[in-house]
Design a protein around this nucleic acid. Structure first.
Lengths: 204, 204, 204, 204
DNA sequence: CATGAATGAGAATTCATTCAT
DNA sequence: AATGAATGAATTCTCATTCAT
């Protein structure tokens, strides 16, 4: 990579990190472009060479941070193979929860955005940059499991939404229960959902 | 009630309705206090006699609208008694989804907020004003059912979060599936959750 | 005095005292009519039944507080007769300084206003209400002294301005010297001024 | 100096001059930032690139204008050497009074502020910008005089306060006497103060 | 007399965006 | 590519004053 190109990446990263620090510190609304460039040690005008506006950088950030989480969990799963699809899913969810519980700032920033639209966009956009396609990986997991599910994407959707929306309150406010209480119940429920979605499984 | 007090209620309502219309039309950020008062036909300063700022009126609005939805569904359930607790829950959820599917504007406004913190605050605050305590009603439903659950509040929490976070994407963006596809799966999953939470029930 | 009249005086006093407390606490500019009436336990509109605006009450207050100081010092002088005009003046000044040094809040409020225009207005206006005419008293002091001065009013003016403007800095900021250091020098200087103004006295 | 830096100085000065004109015309309270920038031919936001708020520019202005007066009088004294310290002081005071009597607008703006705190701050801050240290000059005058005073700073303090607080009323309102009447008395009094402060001098 | 809801002009301040250097 | 001075629209919020009750 040319020296110039490297330099541009450095500046882009500086802006992203500065924005992240400020967004979690005082919220997106209360953060101005000037704040971001000042923290990044760059001039105000420079911002516009890399991002369209505050919401552009915010989306890029959610995408990057969300992908980071998943990549790390997938990596952990690779190092620690599980016996079956169900266990692999539980392992991934458990690892994501562990990461978010450890980094509450990050959780606060992305949890409200751990929903389908952003989730998919995040995964898609990052695919190019980072080279990991979580959706591909998910399809792979299903293929390897040898099982067939009524609607694999819908299943993932429900699981992601259930996990994402419950842990936010639980980790940040311990409401209505603590994480220790929630987790086993969540695991039970997810196993129920997976089994129920298996083509041979039945509800009654 | 004195004439003056009546008048104040009218103005408060005018502000709430104007704010609601604008918030759903162009979002909270893009709505100014001036917009709200202008639409309500009042002077700018009058706003501050009733609400602290934009976020105050927004919270009051979410509380009021959320409570309205639940009250209406509870009312519908009263007129249409169900056989068992499980069916009552499904009925309520079905009715809430029906209302939100019918009024997408309302859905867009509150769906992101149909989460535990706001949900409970909404119910609490509205209890005084409106005289219906949804939590009481829920306890009542459980008592009438004659069943015992491991953690009734946690159960409700998971159901509310699962429903709230899935229908937002599905109704508004038809992503990743349509409502017609989601609903039966959601109903199945909720029945699974309820049965799994029954004290006699077991996962395997 | 009729009950109604008494009541009006009570309200007027409540407003004056509330205004004083707020003016010294946060300054005139940062105090609103609403603040004053709220602190006085009255309705906003009531303010306008007693005062024209914020500056009206501020002037009345300076007048009242300044007159209080002088009245008290004159009273002290009555109880503690001095031998000659010069000593009487020093006694009065000493007592005023003592009062202001004791009540720095009051000092802060009136010291910048202890100047001729307000001083005279204060004395004049209060004359009616309180029944003590400081200027009359001053004339009286001079008459009793048996001395003649080149310009008695000018002499008083210079003394009042010199004392008023020096003690403000000295008491509040101890700048450029402390009150203990200033006072003997001030007394010396005032004696010089008085002697110099005596018709028989000469500068060279 | 770079073109940009020059331009910034021009804008800063434009704001200061516009503010001064408006402050003396209608008072600080009745002047808005918008008024200032409009008069300076700049955009409202530009104000905040140079000053924190109205009180910031007001203080800078007092400092600058006060220093201007003193510098001019010191310059006049240089061109017109006096025989002794006492005469030099009288010359300076006379020149300051002459300037203020000539420019009543300026007098009205700074006279209330011709007191110790601001006076010293003004002198200090301006020292850097303008390169004249009035306090140094004063020390110099004393050194050259060959005389010793009990407390030179206290002496200056009393003189500045006496002159500053008396001429305000006298020049602007001719109260309680005209400037013609006041000046000889003031000169007499100042000579008395200086002589009384001389280490060999005595009050009796 | 007293109240306090309502007004709306007006003030301070912020900030995304542009553009000359 | 990078800068940062300048812009001015937009927004929030205050508050003196009025007036119907």
């Amino acid at each position: 990579m040319a020296r110039v190109e490297e330099n541009k990446l450095v500046k882009r990263s500086a802006l992203l990190e500065a924005a992240f620090a400020l967004f979690v510190e005082r919220g997106i609304i209360r953060t101005s472009i000037a704040d971001i460039t000042k923290k990044a040690g760059l001039a105000k005008g420079t911002f516009y060479l890399y991002f369209k506006d505050k919401y552009d950088i915010s989306n890029k950030l959610i995408a990057r941070k969300t992908a980071d989480i998943f990549n790390q969990s997938v990596e952990a799963l690779r190092k620690c193979p599980q016996d079956c699809f169900e266990d692999e899913m539980i392992f991934l969810i458990d690892d994501v929860i562990r990461q978010l519980n450890h980094d509450k700032i990050l959780l606060n920033f992305i949890s409200k955005n751990l929903e389908w639209g952003i989730f998919k966009n995040a995964i898609m956009e990052q695919t190019e940059e980072i080279g990991l396609d979580v959706m591909d990986y998910y399809q792979d997991m299903i293929a390897r499991s040898g099982k067939r599910f009524r609607d694999p994407e819908l299943m993932l959707f429900m699981i992601v939404e259930l996990v994402g929306s419950t842990i936010h309150n639980v980790i940040l406010f311990k409401e209505p229960v603590t994480l220790e209480v929630l987790k086993p119940e969540l695991v039970r429920t997810i196993r129920l959902i997976i089994r129920d979605q298996e083509m041979d499984g039945s509800i009654d």
